[in-house]
Amino acid sequence: MTTVRTDSALPVPAPIINPDTAEYWAATLEGRLLITRCSQCGEASWYPRPICPFCHSTDTVLEQASGRGTVYTFSVVRKVPGPWAKAAPYVLAYVELEEGPRMMTNIVDCPVEDVSIGAPVEVAFFDTGEGSALPRFRLVDA
């Protein structure tokens, strides 16, 4: 189990938690990344919701993902207005999880020049201070 960190170099916005996502966000406080798995068609999907977007069954469960994946694409955000300005440059990315779904996130804990498509990553959680933790990813050795 990873621990929830409080040392984020980036802003850590809090989500609006609703009945669809309460279980997902509760798990983040324990350092666990959950994804939706359909009990009917077996497919994993993102973002968490109680209907399977592939077969439309409502027989779904949240299961723990490995937290590992690879960078599908990324951008180094260099100029941005508002509260993120002083965090720039930072990396916005899609990570392809080992289970298949691709999720938007940030790549952190490294110089922005080190990020590349295909690079292996693992999840890290950052406390929002409002009953949730935000999953971001860090580069790891292949």
Binding site: L10, P11, P13, P15, I16, I17, T21, W25, W46, Y47, P48, V77, V80, P81, G82, W84, A87, Y90, L92, M103, M104, T105, N106, L134, R136
Partner: peptide, 12 residues
Amino acid sequence: DGFEGRMYGVVG
């Protein structure tokens, strides 16, 4: 909301 966009520094 909570899974993309504002959570990860998407502005515009």
